[in-house]
Amino acid sequence: MAYSEKVIDHYENPRNVGSFDKEEEGVGTGMVGAPACGDVMKLQIKVSEDGIIEDAKFKTYGCGSAIASSSLITEWVKGKSIDEAQEIKNTDIAEELALPPVKIHCSVLAEDAIKAAVSDYKEKQSK
């Protein structure tokens, strides 16, 4: 299958790979997986006191499209409020990366991961 140039770029030079300590104040961790292809994605956000995402990191085991989708979304969420981050749609990711129909689920996974990270952050805050 032919990957788009943008997918290849993110795959070869993934942005924001790594981890934060998930116990750290202001860190939200989203874990998601796709059983059909076996991909596993961890996406973490570091949120400032005024609710702005200062930094984001990811670790993804999966195909090029899954890595590119998570890499792209970590770039997009930086500087956004947590509410704005939740507004990101998988279709925006799929369009930006020119994902073929069989790889759309990779962008869904990235959207689900950011939502899971935000909800983990909110849950931690409410404790």
Binding site: T29, M31, G33, A34, P35, A36, V40, K59, Y61, V108
Partner: peptide, 20 residues
């Protein structure tokens, strides 16, 4: 059960991530 779904069980996924 063959559709493309997202699994969100953090404990299980963390274990899978560690295995990878």
């Amino acid at each position: 059960g063959t559709g493309e779904v997202t699994v969100k069980d953090p404990m299980f996924l963390m274990q899978q991530l560690e295995l990878r």
